[in-house]
């Protein structure tokens, strides 16, 4: 049983190692995620956010604009997740006074 687990771990690590080597190298400004235009001549998210965040919201920090404005719904769900985690912790650990 233990041998199977070690084998699975080694196989998974090998697959990830091979996959990682085929990524674009670190710091490449022309990798698909950092381009201005994708293959269909549409905008790419990263460059679009860099160029439009200040005109859209008058806020220099692009990360804040993406977090709160472009992806506001995402952050709302994430805040609810944080709150739900707190409530779950409370109900798991409260002192039962029965």
């Amino acid at each position: 049983m233990k041998a199977i687990r070690i084998l699975a771990l080694a196989a998974f690590s090998a697959v990830m190692m091979v996959a990682v080597v085929h990524l674009p190298p670190k710091g490449d400004p022309h990798s698909p995620a950092n381009r201005v235009e994708n293959v269909l001549k549409g905008p790419v998210a990263g460059a679009y956010y860099i160029q439009n965040s200040y005109p859209d919201a008058k806020t220099p920090n692009m990360v804040t604009v993406i977090l709160a404005d472009y992806r506001g719904f995402d952050t709302l769900g994430e805040t609810v997740v944080v709150f739900a985690g707190g409530v779950a912790c409370l109900y798991l650990l409260r002192r039962r006074t029965a």
Binding site: P55, D56, K58, T59, A68, G86, L92
Partner: peptide
């Protein structure tokens, strides 16, 4: 654009309150 600036500040206030009190609450409960 300035309204978006203000709106970002508002929701960041909500996020601050929620994260702060959730972490305190988890610590207290643990």
């Amino acid at each position: 654009a300035m309204l978006r600036n203000l709106g970002i500040l508002m929701i960041e206030l909500g996020v601050t309150l929620c994260v702060m009190s959730t972490i305190i609450s988890i610590y207290d409960n643990l």
